[in-house]
Amino acid sequence: MERLSQLAINDEGFIFDPYTGNSYTTNKTGILILSELKNGKSGEEIAKITSEKFNIEHSVALKDVTDFIEQLRSLSLL
C-alpha cells in the first residue's frame, strides 16, 4: 500500500507518480477503488462498497475489482 499512497490523484482521474515520473489516467470507479485500497481495505470489502454505491451485483463488482487489482499489478503499482 505504500506505493499507492505516494500517488497524486486528482478528481478527474489524472494520476502522477512522483516516484517514477509516470502518469496514468483512471475513471471514477478506479478512483474509488484506489482510495479504498489506500485505506487498507481488501478486495472483498471494496467490492461490497462499490456494489452498494453503484447498486450493482456483488459478483460483478468483485470480478471488476479483481481485474483492477490485476491492472495495478501489471503496472507495478501494487
Binding site: 486528482n10 478527474e12 489524472f14 489516467t25
Partner: peptide, 10 residues
C-alpha cells in the same frame, strides 16, 4: 508544469 498536459490527456 503538468496542468496543460493534464488537460490535454484528460
Amino acid at each position: 508544469d503538468l496542468s496543460l498536459f493534464q488537460k490535454i490527456t484528460m
